[in-house]
Measured scan of single mutants.
Amino acid sequence: ELREAFRLYDKEGNGYISTDVMREILAELDETLSSEDLDAMIDEIDADGSGTVDFEEFMGVMT
């Protein structure tokens, strides 16, 4: 189920989504998050600083 959700956002099928897209997902899930909260969450999610979120990083957030 998580893989299907990931595929919805990984429109190009390249195995990752951008941190911008991940930020939008988080904002949709919790509309009360401030910009600073979102920045901090993205920094934590994208631990390797690649600017992308792969499936493993995505799973870590969603579980």
Rank of each mutant, 00 (worst) to 15 (best):
M41G: 01
K11V: 13
A27T: 08
E24G: 10
D37E: 12
T63P: 04
I17H: 00
T19N: 07
S35P: 12
Y9H: 13
S50H: 07
I17K: 00
T19C: 07
G49L: 07
E28A: 15
V61Y: 14
L26S: 00
M22D: 01
D20Q: 14
D30F: 14
E4W: 02
R23K: 10
T63A: 11
D43V: 11
Y16I: 05
M22R: 00
F55Y: 12
G60A: 15
D43N: 15
A47E: 08
G60I: 15
F6W: 14
D10K: 00
D10L: 06
M22W: 04
T52N: 08
I45E: 00
V21K: 13
F6I: 03
E24C: 15
S35E: 14
K11R: 09
D43H: 14
L2A: 05
T32L: 07
M59H: 06
G60Y: 15
F55P: 01
L33P: 01
D39F: 05
E56Q: 10
R7H: 15
E12D: 11
V53Q: 01
G49M: 07
L2C: 15
E31Q: 14
I17E: 01
L29T: 06
I45T: 04
A47Q: 13
D46I: 04
F55A: 04
L29Q: 07
L26K: 00
A47P: 14
G49H: 13
A5I: 15
R23M: 03
M62D: 03
D10N: 01
F58C: 03
I45S: 03
I17S: 00
L38Y: 01
D54C: 09
S35I: 10
G49K: 12
T63C: 14
N14L: 13
D46N: 07
I42G: 00
L29M: 13
I25Q: 01
N14T: 11
M41S: 01
E56P: 06
E57K: 15
M62F: 11
G13P: 01
M59I: 14
Y16C: 04
M41K: 07
E56G: 08
D46A: 05
G13V: 06
V53M: 04
G60R: 15
D39N: 09
D54E: 07
S35H: 11
Y9T: 02
E28D: 11
Y9G: 02
G13W: 03
E57L: 12
D37T: 10
E57A: 15
Y16H: 06
Y9M: 08
E28Y: 11
L26Y: 02
D48V: 07
D37L: 09
D20V: 13
M22V: 09
I42F: 07
L33M: 07
G13T: 03
A47V: 12
N14I: 10
L26I: 07
D30V: 08
D30M: 12
V21P: 00
D48L: 07
R23L: 04
D20H: 12
T52M: 12
D46G: 03
E12L: 08
M62L: 09
K11H: 09
R3A: 13
E12G: 06
V61F: 15
D37C: 13
L38T: 02
G15F: 04
N14D: 07
S34G: 06
E31Y: 13
I17R: 00
A27K: 13
S50N: 08
I42W: 02
S35R: 11
D30N: 13
K11S: 10
E56A: 10
E4H: 05
M41H: 03
G15C: 05
V21D: 12
I25E: 00
G49T: 05
E36K: 09
L38N: 00
S18R: 06
L29F: 11
E4G: 03
M62I: 08
G13N: 11
D10Y: 05
S34P: 03
A5E: 08
I45Q: 02
E36T: 12
D39H: 06
M59C: 10
I25L: 11
L8Q: 15
G49Y: 05
L2P: 04
S18K: 06
T52H: 12
M41F: 07
I25H: 02
D54K: 10
K11E: 08
E36I: 08
D43Y: 13
V21A: 14
D48W: 06
D43A: 15
D39L: 06
E12Y: 06
L8H: 14
L29Y: 12
D48C: 07
V21T: 12
R3W: 15
F6D: 06
A40N: 10
V53W: 04
D48T: 11
E57D: 12
E31C: 12
S35L: 09
S35V: 10
M59F: 13
I42E: 00
D20T: 13
Y9D: 04
E44Y: 11
D20W: 09
I42T: 02
M59E: 08
E36N: 09
S18Y: 06
T32I: 04
S34Y: 03
T52F: 10
A27D: 02
L29H: 11
L38R: 02
E1Y: 13
T63I: 13
G15V: 02
E44W: 13
D37W: 08
E36S: 12
E24L: 14
D30L: 11
L8T: 12
L29I: 08
Y9V: 05
D20Y: 05
E12K: 08
E4Y: 01
L8S: 13
D39K: 08
D37H: 06
G13I: 03
A5T: 14
E57G: 15
S34Q: 06
V21G: 05
G51P: 00
